[in-house]
Design a protein around this nucleic acid. Structure first.
Lengths: 104, 104
DNA sequence: CTTACGCATCAACAATTATTGATACTCAAG
DNA sequence: CTTGAGTATCAATAATTGTTGATGCGTAAG
């Protein structure tokens, strides 16, 4: 039971937090370095580092080093994967399903 | 920051757990009572009651009483809301965005 | 009215996740 | 080589979330 939903749970968990959703929102209009994000979100650097790692572990963001800055950006592939998972949730849903046949 | 992402976070959190994803999967092909779900998932009743409540609080499932049984089913509206939230995540994403103008 | 079933809720505990401040690492500039 | 900026990581702690077993509520059947 656990195995098949592993990646889906990871994706959803990464997005289940307001701070991380705000990070995603900020990154939508282009890559940003961590210091910019701490400015915008008014959040401690280690806190954002933590949340960015959660997003990265779920493949929802990508990072790139340039000099001493690290630029984060949205990872399109991750969003595609998310859409796929959500599509699966919707797939085969039968709205007209009556009372289930079996009981206890 | 927190306020605007509240519902999205609630939805994603509800789906961030393998047990709850399995519940959603089971409910996709029609409504089921809790006792059926405990059979299929091999899980304690109070455990599933807890998880079903999380899903219901996010409007992802609906419940209906019939006699002493309680039937749960997927709530299409919740799934629509989820799709909307995911669409927003994808919207306006600019893949060709260059290095951000401002630095620290 | 009593009993038994299906389910929700609660309290106690376990496990996971988030926050904070300190420290370490990497790179660039001097 | 030293210093400082930007970032990650770690340890400690706090907060949230999940599990379990017990209890209670509603309903149907006897």
């Amino acid at each position: 039971m656990d195995g098949s939903h592993q990646k889906a749970a990871l994706l959803f968990h990464a997005l289940s937090d307001a701070t991380r959703l705000e990070l995603m929102k900020q990154l939508k209009d282009g890559e940003k370095c961590v210091c910019e994000l701490t400015d915008v979100l008014q959040a401690a650097q280690s806190r954002l580092s933590f949340h960015l790692k959660v997003l990265k572990d779920a493949d929802l963001v990508h990072d790139r080093r340039e000099g001493r800055w690290k630029y984060y950006s949205v990872n399109k592939e991750g969003l595609e994967e998310l859409k796929g998972v959500v599509f699966d949730l919707n797939r085969d849903t039968n709205p007209a399903a009556g009372v289930s046949a079996t009981r206890c």
